[in-house]
Amino acid sequence: MLGRRPGLPYPLVIGLLAALLCAAVTAGIAAGSIALPPGQVWGILAHRIHPVLAEPTWPVVRETIVMDVRLPRVLLCAVVGAGLSVCGMALQALVRNPLADPMLLGVSSGATVGAVCVVVFGVTVFGAFSLPVAAFAGALAALVAVYLLARSGGRMTTVRLVLAGVATAEVLSAVAGFLVVTSGDPHKTQSALRWMLGGLAGTTWPVVWVPAGAVVLGTAVLLGVSRPLNLLLAGEEAATALGLDVHRFRAALFVLVAVMIGTIVAVSGSIGFVGLIMPHVVRLLIGADHRRALPATALLGASFLIAADLFARTLITPEEIPVGIITALVGGPFFLWLMRRRSR
């Protein structure tokens, strides 16, 4: 695993990352087809918290833009970025592979199949929530498949987990591609492809709460098991010698991380590389201790995805680029650099 001795005091790093997140949130809300002054953005937010905190000197339409259009999207970006980053860090410890990321388990591909089925076949059983519900159901089905394939003799080894996840992801990606190619409707094909590339357009408040709850609770659990995660970094034999039931712990954490990923992907589509890049950047800053690294990873991941989404929706206005393209353009070169660094 990558990591080095921390060069900066931990409180300073957390403070800087919190300031970075605050700046990213401000920019994400202020920028758009109608630009808003940062001071006005915070004035609107303060007024909504309590009317005494700010005098409403802005047009009502601007308050609607902030509270009903941009703020839900920015918050969902923060939730998705933090969740993918935390899951990536946990997975890299669980499988002891620094190149592991949330897409490794095949859960994302399962969610993609569920979402593509809704788009291609026009399923509307759950109304506006049909797509996220189907995506989560697909993610859950993929989770069960990988879990069953990875277990052998009541145990789940790292090699079997990785192989089962990769194989399941490839098969499900092929299924999703087949459904898109044979849909025969260009509009449906385009909608499915845009979802597969990841995006957060059209986010509303009801969509935010479920993934936010899953990420907060999941991160809290991961923080609670920081010590066993640290033990895994030393190797399975060392962790077992120190009293950790490695196979049971890995199976339980695998389920937790997969459910978190399924919940996230159900509302955001497949957004790659976030869970790969952010853990490594944090380890370079403060080391590999999960008690310190997990909060920092969540803050950095949230800031990164807000910035990527801002870039995606303002680069060629009024068109919007799927945010997964932006994260891939950033993550691909980083992946290659990481491979070269490890080969040395």
Rank of each mutant, 00 (worst) to 15 (best):
L163A: 05
L336P: 08
F249L: 12
V61W: 14
I306N: 01
P51L: 02
P295L: 03
L253N: 13
D245H: 15
F254G: 03
R341S: 07
G184T: 08
Q190A: 14
Y10G: 03
I325K: 09
I271R: 00
F273H: 05
G331M: 04
M339L: 15
R344Y: 11
H47D: 00
I261C: 15
L131Y: 06
R5Q: 14
V267S: 11
V274N: 04
A308L: 02
L84A: 05
G202F: 13
C87F: 06
L310I: 13
R342N: 10
E63K: 10
M278P: 01
W42V: 02
A128M: 10
G165Q: 07
G235L: 05
L229Q: 07
R155Y: 12
R250F: 02
V120L: 02
G198P: 09
S130Y: 09
L315F: 14
G7Q: 12
G332L: 10
V66P: 12
A139S: 10
V210M: 09
V162M: 04
R5M: 12
G262F: 11
S303A: 15
T57D: 05
T26N: 04
V113Y: 10
W205S: 06
G262K: 06
Q40K: 14
L233I: 11
L91V: 03
P206E: 02
I326L: 13
Q92P: 08
Y147H: 10
A293D: 03
R341L: 04
V208Q: 00
S85P: 12
I65G: 05
A169I: 11
A192Y: 08
I277V: 15
L2D: 09
G224D: 03
G165D: 00
H247F: 15
L242W: 10
A192N: 08
I316D: 07
G224A: 04
W209E: 00
I321V: 14
V159D: 10
I321Y: 13
A18S: 14
I14K: 00
R344E: 06
S226F: 01
T240S: 15
S303M: 02
H247S: 15
R96M: 08
F335C: 06
A238N: 15
V159G: 11
L53P: 10
G324Q: 02
A174P: 09
V265K: 02
T204S: 12
G88Q: 00
L20W: 09
R96H: 14
R313F: 06
N230S: 14
F249M: 13
R291I: 12
F304E: 03
L276Q: 03
P56N: 00
I264T: 07
P56E: 06
P333W: 01
R155Q: 13
H50T: 04
G122E: 08
V119L: 06
I14Y: 07
A220M: 10
P6R: 05
E55Q: 15
A27F: 13
I264D: 05
A293L: 12
A46E: 05
S173G: 15
R227Y: 11
S183N: 04
V79A: 00
M260Y: 13
L193V: 15
R5L: 14
F334T: 07
G198Y: 08
S152W: 12
P132A: 00
F126P: 01
R227L: 07
A27R: 13
A258M: 07
W209S: 10
H280A: 04
G199K: 06
V159H: 13
P228C: 03
G110H: 05
R313P: 09
L338Y: 08
T157I: 02
L179Y: 07
